[in-house]
Write a protein that binds this DNA or RNA. Structure first.
Lengths: 333, 333
DNA sequence: TCCTCCCATGTAATCGTTTCCATGAAGGGA
DNA sequence: TCCCTTCATGGAAACGATTACATGGGAGGA
């Protein structure tokens, strides 16, 4: 492949001059600049970013490690991160941890070796030694969506607490009393937060928190289905099933349908985390919408601040309740 | 950051030896190997992939340029590509062209500069000069899902023709005669192919191809909605709307719902390209399923063959008709 | 006319690896 | 005992860019 040397030879100048032209340094004659550009075009020269990065110690690349690209929430997040990063002149390398700590570690390792300029992680479950190292090493790192306890890392996340309170109030107002919750993994900050908010909100509305109306899934559809099944088998089944994320809501929906039950007449359904097609399901599903794009954009901005050694304070965005027909009549007092 | 030199000093050996240990070359004593590993661990050494790539001329990275990560079809594709690539020791950099030629070019340029070992492109519309260059330069390149005319590039794609014939036959058997088609952009090979197959299949079933029952969208939801609206406004509206991709099907679904029409009683709906939530819509939507995972995996394999300079023949996978309730009673003769 | 200053340009070191080649010690066969 | 072979190890040259520093020519002032 043609390098800067060939360009220099073709243009009759030194490699230094070519480099200056390419980085449009001001100290170069208009004439030589033209010659170099001509040579670049003639030889179809493409700068070698690898060599440049080696010398400049910057790759203009960000790493993003997410739970699962097939989850629409993460897809939207990834898309937003990419857009914002591109606007700032960065490329994003996405790693799919698939919610597995070892795969998360695989990507942390790979991305560190690739010398990404910064790392955005939606941490999966545990504090792995690698992540700890990474924090200790002080490389630019920002936690996205989720946080890990005990680590001094800036984070950009959504707080769903008030939206969950709103949802429970809404359900209470509609006359529902027996509200079950399919929670997420205890190991994830988002899982813990939503569970806590559910319990607080139930108490706040004067509703009873029943042991058998709470069970933890793994944020995947299958667990939502299984748990919904158990709820519906109870001697006194819940009137509402509230799922802790969109995939478990999907699983619950399948289970309810499979039993030939009607929504919301036989059982109502709500989801934390709204996705585009919830509108198209029959009935449309009441959900708590997270500002995923905003989240992604803010995360990139925070990371860039860290990269430039500016102080960065944590970002917490609010979620929003979107009421639809899956919980019965809305819009009526 | 600590480099190979520090490791060498700490272990009391030369950099050459450290390098040999890291690449586990056989010609190294068990004893020195141990010393080096100890030093690596003690110093928390991380190999610098940038420097390594510069020297070895290989980045172990593949580029993937897709239309839009928010389209579930591409999300599944991207996921499969990543999985297969990781299994082969490669990292994938995903570029979101957003169906815009200039953004596609942005990624082609960036990825070439990053010296990816190979490039997987779902080409957007036009043959841009950059892509032409890229082909001329002979860098490992494979077209995925879509192809570009007149370029000698191996491709891995789905042929939906027979599935479309099957669909039209199915609709004909159910008694439908007026079948409208929301086609994709003429500029995309997939768009052209599906349109051609629709027309052929209509003729094969002895059905009339009516000018007003064909209109091209842009593979995005909004266009599907607008075109469905026009179809439904016709003096003699179609009995079935067949959308050329999942997003346009979604748009059409919205339009039909907005008009308070019932599916399939008032108008039936079918989609090229099946997505997970089609099952959960009411009624579930008849669709032509593409083997997206298989497509992604085969594309990576083909690309790796090209990288290793082995001959690679084009791959064409069949699509499959999945009948559901949106086109009326199925499973009955 | 000559000195000085400026500024465009060139030379060469450098980034962290890999890898070719040299080196020297050890071992074995004669 | 000596020489040849084998093999682990080290020295140093790449890879392709950036950049500090050197250089030289031209212009302008005295």
């Amino acid at each position: 492949m043609v390098g800067i040397k060939e360009v220099a030879a073709h243009a009759g100048v030194s490699v230094a001059t070519v480099s200056r032209v390419l980085n449009d340094s001001p100290k170069v004659t208009e004439e030589t600049r033209a010659k170099v550009h001509a040579a670049v075009k003639a030889l179809r020269y493409r700068p070698n970013a690898v060599a440049r990065s080696l010398r400049t110690e910057a790759t203009h690349t960000l790493g993003l490690i997410i739970g699962d690209i097939l989850n629409p929430f993460f897809a939207v997040l990834a898309r937003a991160v990419e857009d914002e990063a591109r606007a700032a002149g960065y490329t994003v390398v996405i790693g799919n941890a698939d919610e597995r700590p070892e795969q998360q570690d695989h990507y942390v390792r790979t991305l560190l070796e690739q010398r990404v300029d910064g790392l955005l992680i939606c941490p999966t479950a545990e504090v792995t030694p690698l992540v700890e190292d990474c924090v200790a090493a002080g490389g630019p790192l920002v936690f996205l969506d989720r946080t890990l306890p005990g680590l001094e890392v800036p984070s950009v996340r959504v707080d769903g607490t008030s939206a969950i309170h709103e949802l429970i109030r809404h359900l209470h107002d509609l006359g529902y009393r027996r509200i079950a919750f399919i929670s997420g993994p205890e190991l994830l900050s988002t899982g813990r937060e939503r569970t806590q908010a559910y319990m607080d909100a139930m108490r706040a509305s004067g509703l009873e928190i029943r042991e058998e109306y709470m069970e933890a899934g793994d944020f995947q559809a299958a667990s939502g289905q299984a748990i919904a099944a158990r709820f519906l088998e109870l001697p006194e089944p819940p009137q509402v099933i509230f799922a802790g994320d969109n995939l478990m809501a999907l699983g619950a929906l399948d289970e309810i349908r499979a039993r030939g039950m009607r929504i919301p007449e036989d059982v109502a359904l709500a989801s934390f985390d709204d996705v585009a097609w919830f509108v198209h399901v029959d009935p449309p599903i009441t959900a708590i919408a997270q500002p995923a794009e905003e989240l992604g954009r803010r995360a990139v901005r925070a990371l860039l601040e860290r990269i430039e050694h500016r102080p960065v304070e944590p970002v917490v965005l609010p979620a929003r309740l979107v009421t639809r027909r899956s919980c019965g009549e809305t819009g009526k007092p």
